[in-house]
Design a protein around this nucleic acid. Sequence first.
DNA 1: CGTGTTATTGCAAAAAGTTGCAATAAGGAG
DNA 2: CTCCTTATTGCAACTTTTTGCAATAACACG
Lengths: 141, 141
Amino acid sequence: MTCSADYAPELRSRGYRMTPQRLAILHVLHHSGKHLTPAQVYQKASRELDGLTEPTVYRTLEFLAENGLARPAHMGNGHLAYEIARHKHHHLKCRNCGNEMEVQHSLLEKLYRQLESASGYQLTDSHVTFFGLCPDCQRGE
Amino acid sequence: MTCSADYAPELRSRGYRMTPQRLAILHVLHHSGKHLTPAQVYQKASRELDGLTEPTVYRTLEFLAENGLARPAHMGNGHLAYEIARHKHHHLKCRNCGNEMEVQHSLLEKLYRQLESASGYQLTDSHVTFFGLCPDCQRGE
DNA sequence: CGTGTTATTGCAAAAAGTTGCAATAAGGAG
DNA sequence: CTCCTTATTGCAACTTTTTGCAATAACACG
């Protein structure tokens, strides 16, 4: 649980507060290491913090995403899952078996530049997920 | 209404059927020309087709997307909006004013190739939306 | 044109996600 | 260590989205 405490100063310096709820949710995300849906977060974090409620989970997840501590990821069905923020990356998911791998953000840097100069926009972030068939599914069914 | 009828053969050849519901929804998407949320589609299409229900709208939108007649787009809040399928493109949206412009898919082609050769995946599609500040919002607030 | 198959819809109920607001508690100030 | 401000939570009600299933109606076929 202590492992997530480092986030506290970060939040405080922005005028926000560290709470048991946020700590529990960060802890869950941190230790799972993968994407979790709000329902999964609620389930796991409830075990660590009694009395946690669903609205709090939804609000906290959104809050953490806005503050860069968690990253939302689009998993193909229009719903969001979250993971702890590490290095910037995107996802490549197999339409057939659901298997999924990371795509380094650096691969998109050049594209970012192109877009900025072509559009005049100043890019801040993006929601990017690629879909396809993984090597295994390209062979057998 | 007739304008959307061209889609019928396309569906039939795949073993699906053209129905008044699908026609109405295609019609709405076709004539609006922009993104519509399921709720907006329901509202507009209900006016054209009496008795249309929400579950049908959700199912139809998903169905149209799966069959390439409509495209889902992530509008930044984790929810999907749909638009009629035209040329492949993505979106660049201003975080401040919400203004939005299209990004040609061709700009991503090179990236697609890179990804395919680096991952072994065979790309089929992607969910891509870029966020940033538009030129106007970069100046005044 | 009827007829049969089965994709599609509507309905009702469930699940998921959101919102308003009063009560609570984090944490800076004294 | 106590007090005060106000960010945050829990609760309850609400809206949105999904699901199961029986009834309906496309449309291929004769």
